[in-house]
């Protein structure tokens, strides 16, 4: 059986997962992911026709609602306390509009 993923596939996954990989890392990751996906064959061993899926272990629990009540939450200062870069009370990020920025 051939590989499950090519290097190009892995490049595409890295883009979606937002993880920048060098060409060397990409080659290594391709080998690793193929080995791991290859080890997952166990889930094809059973006939699953008509078996409904279970998405979590608490049987029958669908939606959990609580009362829509006001409770204390983070002050702005606290919410910003872990930000790698903040500016005037906001989370700062590089410009997101166009090649030359937005101003």
């Amino acid at each position: 059986m051939g590989p499950h993923l090519t290097e190009d596939d892995v490049r595409g996954i890295a883009e979606v997962a937002r993880i920048g990989l060098t060409e060397d890392e990409l080659a290594r990751m391709t080998v690793d992911l193929n080995a791991i996906v290859g080890s997952l064959a166990g889930i094809f061993e059973y006939d699953l026709e008509g078996v409904s899926p279970t998405f979590h272990p608490i049987g029958g629990l669908v939606n959990v609602m609580r009362e829509d009540a006001e409770t204390p939450s983070f002050a702005q200062r606290q919410a910003l306390s872990g930000a790698p870069h903040e500016q005037e009370g906001f989370f700062a990020v590089p410009s997101i509009l166009g090649e030359d920025g937005d101003r």
């Binding site: 596939d9 996954i13 890295a14 979606v16 993880i19 920048g20 990989l21 990751m29 992911l33 997101i96």
Partner: peptide
């Protein structure tokens, strides 16, 4: 912003974390 995501996550996550994230994404 895209470059910042990709560089920060590549630097911040170690090899096994990167593998599991990539695997899950796939």
């Amino acid at each position: 912003l895209a470059e910042q995501y990709e560089a920060s996550r590549a630097e911040g996550f170690g090899p096994e974390a990167r593998r599991r994230i990539m695997l899950g994404c796939y």
